[in-house]
Write a protein that binds this DNA or RNA. Structure first.
Lengths: 154, 154
DNA sequence: CCAACTTACGTGACATGTCAACTATTCCCG
DNA sequence: CGGGAATAGTTGACATGTCACGTAAGTTGG
């Protein structure tokens, strides 16, 4: 009889997949970040924030909602928005309905910055990621990531 | 005639897969880090360094080789090793063959720390990742990530 | 041999991210 | 109403990561 505390390690296949996953997870964002910085005045987190703001008609989103959409901690977002505001990419605005709340608002400079940066960024994503995968791969990968995300939510 | 500068944006399917990929890429390491910190005195980067060191028979690896294996920048590794050395997890040792070089050496405290941390960590990886995927998924995912990694290398 | 180049690593300044604590409001319920 | 609990957001200290540069040791061509 073996004890129940014996650890079930990863099989060779699992280990290989896991190592590749980790490697890709490190290298892909690094590449995206480097190229984005080279081609624009934005960092990857800057870009992510601006994407969320341009998704809104008025370019105007509550901090908490933005944090939820980005899956960032509040304090991280607060720090980051402060820095972006200093560079003129966004502005903060008080919320009239709720005295505690604030909006983050896209400035014209912020809109101009993401519009300049986006085309090259999409090209990088294609070149580094989608060009290596078949259409079927993309669908399968979407399904797998969703299964794992669902698991994480529970 | 359209201009060649027209940007080819992502299709709906691509966009969905991409967003899920990004979400998973953010959430999974965050979970692994939280649980590792809760269950041990190690951070995820600490763990990664220690894994590399335990892979070597003598637990003794040149800085440059370690940086290559981890795909980290030298300076990042240098800073991190300094911090880990301060906590007694590793030691630095001069290289006799090459006066410029140094080794990072696993201490017994470092070995003990990773041996304590590994079982719970593997369980977390299983629970959060592999349990959501079929054996076939794991193989396919391994193939896909390898294709993308190969693309990045070129 | 030696001057120029390369390589190995470290350092300091700064950007980014986390955690715990804080302030100010709003909510809820007696 | 009034007072405690929850919520929105900020802040400061600190850990982590990046970038540009520095230093020392090895390498190499004339």
């Amino acid at each position: 009889m073996t004890t129940q505390t014996a650890t079930r390690w990863l099989s060779d296949t699992e280990q290989q997949t896991w190592r590749r996953w980790l490697a890709l997870n490190a290298q892909l964002p690094a590449l995206l970040h480097r190229e984005l910085q080279r081609d624009s005045e934005l960092s990857l987190p800057d870009f992510d924030v601006l994407v969320q703001l341009t998704d809104d008609d008025r370019g105007r989103v509550r901090i908490a909602q933005l944090a939820e959409a980005l899956q960032w901690e509040r304090s991280r977002l607060s720090h980051h928005v402060t820095r972006m505001a200093r560079r003129g990419l966004v502005e903060k605005e008080d919320c009239l309905d709720d005295g505690r709340g604030s909006f983050v608002v896209l400035t014209s400079a912020g809109r101009a910055a993401i519009e300049r940066a986006a085309p090259a960024h999409v090209r990088t994503v294609r070149r580094a990621f989608f060009d290596a995968l078949s259409d079927e791969d993309v669908v399968l990968l979407g399904e797998m990531t969703e299964k794992v995300l669902a698991q994480l939510r529970s």
